[in-house]
């Protein structure tokens, strides 16, 4: 055992430095890089909805001649990848911490899972009776709406301003997209939604670095 470490810090300045260094070092290790939580989702929306717009542009045109199955497949693969990255990063950071935070995270996760399933089950039954372009709008506007609402809820749970603002932003652009109509909605979601997530990730990261400074 190191006998030395039972001794007090040499002076007040050393004690304060020790506190600050230790707190920032711990926070750095326990807080996952915010970019890893935001950016994969932003890229998924940007690319996935972007391809959807290019293939199913307004007026039933195809701006780029892609196979019709490609946009949705890419979107779902990228969303699954983003979910996996988020899960791995969170478990690595918070996996050994339990208590109230862990419970909040778990319940929030359940809200996403159960909320999605319950909504999509209903949508699936309606959308089969709709023309393709309206079915696509119904699906994406509902999915994006749920995402916006849950981001706002997450902001409320953790009192996280960035997360809440992102939720507001997503809800507003979803509204704009829904009024713009079929064909335009994916473009707005890709550029403003996906781009908004990339910006939010950069802001959250900067805030995090300021917090972690000793």
């Amino acid at each position: 055992m190191d006998l030395d470490d039972d001794s007090p810090p040499t002076d007040a300045a050393a004690a304060l430095r020790l506190i600050q260094d230790q707190r920032s070092a711990t926070a750095r290790r326990l807080d996952p890089d915010a970019r890893l939580l935001y950016w994969p989702w932003g890229v998924a929306w940007l690319v996935g909805f972007g391809l959807f717009f290019l293939r199913f542009a307004p007026g039933d045109r195809a701006l780029v001649d892609l196979p019709s199955w490609l946009p949705l497949t890419v979107l779902f693969v990228l969303l699954a990848a983003a979910g996996t990255i988020q899960a791995v990063v969170s478990v690595r950071a918070y996996g050994q911490v339990s208590g109230d935070s862990a419970r909040r995270g778990k319940w929030y996760g359940y809200a996403w899972a159960l909320g999605s399933v319950s909504i999509y089950a209903g949508l699936g039954r309606i959308s089969e009776h709709l023309p393709h372009d309206l079915a696509a709008l119904l699906w994406s506007a509902t999915a994006v709406g749920l995402t916006g609402a849950l981001h706002m809820a997450g902001g409320a749970v953790w009192l996280d301003q960035d997360l809440f603002r992102l939720g507001v932003w997503i809800s507003v652009i979803n509204l704009v997209g829904a009024f713009a109509g079929p064909g335009w909605h994916p473009l707005i979601v890709a550029v403003a939604g996906g781009g908004g997530m990339l910006v939010a990730g950069a802001i959250a990261r900067r805030r995090q670095q300021q917090r972690q400074q000793p």
């Binding site: 030395d4 039972d6 001794s7 007090p8 004690a15 707190r23 711990t26 926070a27 326990l30």
Partner: peptide
């Protein structure tokens, strides 16, 4: 007021 315990407590205080 001992270096090791101060580090322990400072670390735990970030939770």
């Amino acid at each position: 007021h001992a270096q090791a315990r101060l580090r322990v407590v400072a670390s735990l205080s970030t939770l």
